[in-house]
């Protein structure tokens, strides 16, 4: 039982502190200040917080790119600087740090080789990922000419090439169009269903709300709130119905009943389609009308290998 639990804790952070120092070792910024976290297998965990609250710093410590000033960090029960565990992690950095002279295809091939993936596996995954991110038609252009969002997609594909158990996404939706955002969210849900663990950081609340199982809200390097989204957002004292429009007299009757019961005037409005839905529809229509693509092709496809259930 104990072992089972051990196995299920993917990331364990205890009292983590990171102080950035200047050249003379004088402390400059206390970016992370006494952080405690425990992330379990199959969870989508959101790190939320305003700019500069220490999200990226925490993530970089989990990846071994920064060293903790004090505190304990375990990833897969090992030190984050252990090379062995890196094969099980996928990482999308806050910006796309890609090689401008490579094409998406070459980029993915390069990172695939760093994971020592077999040739055939690599080839197959590259094409599936390019298709998933809608970059098939741009597979041989160089990343340097890409727009920010397109480069971001290459970055995302790169993070998934090793079919990682733990995916760490630093502001995954920044720079992406709404189609891309939706896709990334779907992707996270799919991966989580397969038992993968996902950590994402964001300052966009919509991202987090839709997908995260649990979130931590960071401010100034320490956690101000931690728990599941429902838990944190639930307002016990109000209720909302959504239904087809009612005829005026039915409506009148319903309102009267409510007024009588609670002794207060209820709020009534017509829900409008939100902009996200509207945008998705327009793009979908336009895509169906054209065949030539210069930007990103919207697609619903998921890379097949990411869908295979673990045995």
């Amino acid at each position: 039982m104990d072992e089972q639990k051990e196995n299920d804790v993917i990331v364990e952070v205890h009292n983590l502190v990171k102080v950035f120092k200047d050249f003379w070792q004088r402390p400059k910024v206390r970016a992370v200040d006494g952080l405690d976290l425990e992330i379990r297998r199959g969870e989508i965990f959101g790190l939320l917080g305003p700019n500069g609250s220490g999200k990226s710093t925490t993530i970089k410590i989990l990846l071994g790119l920064l060293h903790a000033t004090s505190g304990n960090v375990l990833v897969f029960n090992r030190s984050p600087r252990d090379v062995e565990i890196k094969a099980r992690i996928g990482y999308l950095p806050e910006e796309s740090y890609l090689y401008n002279y490579l094409s998406p295809c070459e980029t993915l091939n390069f990172y695939g080789r760093l994971f020592d993936l077999k040739n055939s596996v690599r080839k197959e995954r590259i094409w599936q990922l390019l298709e998933m991110t809608g970059l098939t038609h741009a597979a041989n252009r160089s990343v340097g000419e890409f727009s920010k969002g397109m480069a971001r997609r290459v970055g995302l594909a790169q993070a998934l090439i090793n079919d990682p158990e733990l995916v760490i996404l630093d502001e995954p939706t920044s720079g992406l169009d709404p189609v891309g955002c939706r896709q990334v969210k779907d992707l996270m849900l799919t991966l989580a269903k397969r038992g993968k663990t996902i950590i994402l950081s964001s300052h966009l609340l919509a991202d987090v709300e839709d997908v995260c199982d649990r979130i931590a809200i960071l401010y100034n390097g320490s956690i101000k709130a931690l728990g599941s989204v429902n838990q944190l957002l639930e307002k016990q004292e109000s209720v909302r119905f959504t239904m087809p429009s009612l005829s005026p007299d039915v409506m009148k009757k319903v309102l009267e009943l409510i007024r009588e019961k609670i002794g207060k005037e209820p709020e009534v409005d017509h829900p409008s389609m939100n902009l996200e839905q509207f945008f998705l529809e327009v793009v979908e229509k336009a895509h169906k009308a054209t065949s030539q693509q210069s930007g990103v092709a919207p697609t619903e496809r998921m890379a097949d290998y990411l869908l295979i259930k673990d045995k």
């Binding site: 970089k60 090379v83 890196k86 094969a87 890609l98 090689y99 990172y111």
Partner: peptide
């Protein structure tokens, strides 16, 4: 400096 190393160092590379 350009942080491209971030993507290499997080791979299983010594």
């Amino acid at each position: 400096e350009s942080r491209q190393i971030h993507l290499i160092a997080v791979k299983p590379v010594h």
